[in-house]
């Protein structure tokens, strides 16, 4: 096993699946010779050739359409949108077209596309590079939306996404790309989509998070431990569909829950989780289910980023409200 950062694990997953299936194609802006602006496709063109790993003209909508057309010829396209803030340019291809392919063809066609894109704040990018726009994807039936929080998960989830016969939006948090290393097996392995992971077990409180907020939640749980509270941290990993079973089982055990998202509060991934808990586990609750989220402004200019983004202190503060209710 090798120690890998998340971006290395992603490259490794792409390489593994390109070796495994000659129908897998990787393309996008600067992904070929340049290996992607974050080097997520580093070395792939050299290994697999320009026929399978290629640069496209600079147009996100075109990249989305290209993926759909290639899928119709039996390929398994893995396009990259260079930054997820650019997703508005390709919204019709994603939500209007690939998400509907199976449905509008009465189940006779499909779009096995994995659209990868970096997102998320904390690394001082210019405007439109760091927004958390995942709600745009989770609100569209027909898509699956995956957000890994560790190198190990990233590889296993990406392989599952590429093998999936429906379109998957695979969101890679910018801050997590190189924030830590982890043992990652060299061979192919899969982590099922739609399955959350309990990243830390606990008995007093369930903290549900995804993406970069998983690390913040784990930090908060450690601090809470010092004060005598045992917090369980669930990493959603797939935010559409949600792993309701794991969430409910945990809430039934702890009786208290909170949900953490990096996106603005009005971008309601967390709200959706809260509603599911209300629907299914209200009688197990000892306290209201609270949320930690970013304020409802546009994603901030970089100098205000650190204050704007939710962090472990915000999580601890809210956790105490839930714990002492």
């Amino acid at each position: 096993m090798a120690q890998m950062t998340m971006v290395q694990a992603i490259t490794d997953a792409l390489k593994t699946e390109m070796q495994n299936d000659e129908n897998v194609l990787v393309f996008g802006e600067d992904v070929g010779n340049n290996g992607g602006v974050f080097r997520a496709t580093e070395g792939l063109q050299k290994e697999f050739g320009e026929d399978r790993v290629f640069d496209t003209p600079l147009a996100e909508s075109g990249i989305g359409g290209l993926a759909i057309g290639l899928a119709l010829q039996g390929f398994r396209p893995v396009p990259e949108i260079q930054f997820f803030g650019f997703v508005y340019e390709v919204m019709d291809s994603i939500s209007g077209q690939m998400a509907r392919m199976r449905f509008r063809s009465g189940g006779s066609l499909n779009a096995p596309i994995t659209l990868r894109s970096p997102f998320g704040g904390g690394v001082h990018t210019p405007e439109m590079h760091a927004d958390s726009l995942e709600l745009l994807m989770t609100s569209q039936p027909g898509l699956k939306v995956v957000v890994p929080s560790t190198p190990y998960d990233a590889k296993g989830l990406l392989i599952s996404a590429i093998r999936d016969n429906d379109p998957v939006i695979f969101l890679e948090h910018l801050k997590l790309y190189r924030s830590g290393r982890q043992e990652v097996p060299e061979e192919a392995y899969t982590i099922p989509l739609g399955k959350a992971d309990i990243k830390r077990e606990g008995k007093d409180l369930t903290i549900i998070a995804y993406g970069a907020m998983v690390q913040e939640s784990l930090k908060a749980a450690e601090e809470l431990e010092k004060e005598g509270y045992s917090a369980e941290v669930i990493d959603l990993r797939t935010i559409q569909p949600l792993d309701i079973e794991t969430i409910v089982a945990s809430v039934e055990k702890t009786g208290r829950a909170m949900v953490v998202q990096e996106a603005q509060k009005q971008a309601g991934i967390a709200a959706n989780v809260v509603a599911e808990i209300m629907d299914r586990a209200i009688l197990s609750l000892e306290a209201p289910v609270l949320r930690v989220a970013a304020p409802d402004s546009i994603f901030p200019f970089s100098q205000a980023e650190q204050v704007w983004l939710p962090n472990s202190k915000d999580i601890i503060e809210t956790a105490k409200k839930v714990l002492t209710f």
Binding site: L70, F75, Q97
Partner: peptide, 17 residues
Amino acid sequence: GAQYIQAAGVALGMQKR
């Protein structure tokens, strides 16, 4: 117009095949 970009993809796929 959505079919135009998809046509480019189908055509590229045919070329690759």
